[in-house]
Nucleic acid binder design. Sequence first.
RNA 1: GCUGCUAUAGCUCAGUGGUAGAGCACCUCCUUGGUAAGGAGGAGGUCCUGGGUUCGAGUCCCAGUAGCAGCUCCA
Length: 648
Amino acid sequence: MSTESQIQLTLPDGSVREYDAGTTGLQVAESIGRGLAKAAVGIELDGEVMSLQLPITQSAAMKIFTRDSKEGLQVLRHSAAHVMADAVKRIRPKAKLWKGPPVDDPRYGFYYDIDFGDEPITVDDLPKLEELMREIIKSNVPFELRELDRPAAIKLMEEHNEDYKLATIAKIPEDQSLTFYHSGNFVDLCKGPHVPTTAKVGDGIAVLALAGAYFGDNADNKMLTRVYGHAFADKKAMAAHRKNLEEAAKRDHRRLGVDLDLFSTMGELGAGLILWHPKGGFVRHKVEEFWKNEHLKGGYDLVYSPHIAKSELWQTSGHLDFYKESMYSGIDIDGSEYLLKPMNCPFHVQMYKTKRRSYRELPFRWAELGTVYRYENQGSLHGLLRVRGFTQDDAHLFLREDQVEAEITRCLHFVVDMLRAFGFDEYEMMLSTRPDKSVGDDASWQKATEALRKALESVGLGYEMDEGGGAFYGPKIDVKIKDSIGRTWQCSTIQADFNLPERFDMTYIAKDGERTRPVMVHRALLGSLERFFGILVEHHGGAFPVWLAPVQAVILSVGERHADAVDQMSRTLKERLLRVDADTNSDKIGGKIRNHLWQEKVPMVAVVGDQEFENGTVTVRSRVGGDLGTMTVAEFGDMLEKMVANRE
RNA sequence: GCUGCUAUAGCUCAGUGGUAGAGCACCUCCUUGGUAAGGAGGAGGUCCUGGGUUCGAGUCCCAGUAGCAGCUCCA
């Protein structure tokens, strides 16, 4: 590290500027332009984000972040967290701070975990907190960085009674510096970066919610109070964010489940158990029908298995050892204990074992829409997305080693095609590798992981690694889809399994006549029908495409004299297996259109008045396409059929 | 499971310890009309369940159940 008196800063456009060493980022921004200085909240030097107000001592590649950039918002939100903690300490001086980072969450920009001791905070305090934040922001005190030696740092935190910060200091290696950011009387152990002064946090802030969070994110520890807030570049951006959330709430599958009469849950049944109403049930039927047909086309066989089995089966499979706490307790039948199935695999394995298998027969591809039951913590249940009884679109492949790579690649293409058929083009893919606690030899893990990787590369979509995130029995690919507010949920999965073939001593007779262990792959394309349906509802905002819609069209009578014709028309179309209802109520036509097209989210309505009555035609209006003009009933039927065929 | 909050009509929600409310939806009648709410009337309640305090509980307290937000977990 050399000390220079002049430093050279290379800007993103490639231009190089020279400054005195010790010039601050803010001064650099000012030298470039007043507007930039005003909007700037942080800088990056050689890839490291840093506070704007700190002196720059060395030549570097430099970027200046404005308050609306991704990195700038991080700095802004982190600073807002400090301001919020400052506000908290003003109304609860005894509160002890733990940590307050910015977060990448669709609804919250930052939080602060705080131990309120015997003076808890309530939601009624949140407006007061926000008001105090605005005062602190207005007071425009600078964020100042101070580096302290260990004894001084400990002394400072002792003075402030910050037990958790003292614990943090104890964990920081001796050779690492201890930095604090002061803003007025508030001080926090913190690496930064922060905006130069509190005023820079701006007016796009909100204190939003309270929740519990374990100290150290560990369920064995004490629970602290997490205060959530958000911060945007300005008021306008905050307003836009709130508007987005409102729009997202309208797409919430739990809301739409009630409004559109798709499904329900009820206390009398028990938590996490779903009632599929006729309309939701119909969409599920269409999903299942499509799914089954695609599997038959793809060389799969459909199989079925029971919902319960003797505990010995689960003992052999390993589920009783590894997942007992997720399984429902036993049912006594003739003195034997039976358990509800949490997975379908042991059944398929047993099916495999009913006879001697030859290498000539492989691969087997056995698919089942298998309903399983798993205990999930009450607090994790969430509409259709996390439930206790659900139907997996499961399949198990039993393969020779030489078939693994090709079959896995085939599976992944199947995943992508299936998701695309339902309108999903955006998802996250993860490749999860061997965890610490696992079975199987290194070579097998290596091979299977490579097969999965090659499959991912063959579909040409990006993926992330989750090192050590695999199942204990093998590596896997997971596909996650976003819900209406941007939370991701695992749907598709492809998993290699070295455990079950071993445990159940599965074999086939290889070409050389030797008993050989098959490779087993578990895969689900949709994940569970419940979860997938929930996300499907949110994806379409409840407005299903024609091929899935429980009601595809409603024919509306303008006046009383058109009622019989409308009934007749809907009957004609129903005979063509189109899902077309008649509305001959005495409401006005505008009201009927509003009801069906906009409230029930039916894709099409067809109006019949005097003119149509005379000619045997309908005037069609589509939810998405607007006025489609007048056509004969037969033509309307053709149009709907064509849309179904194209899966529109 | 943990922290906090919530539970009143089908839905959204008011309701101060003293006779249960509104809007929408529903039913009936009037209206027969032309592309996002025509009018009038009516019916609809175990105020989640159980216990407690009180002369009296939808309201206050406790427990359970269920839901919401987050944490933990998620084969």
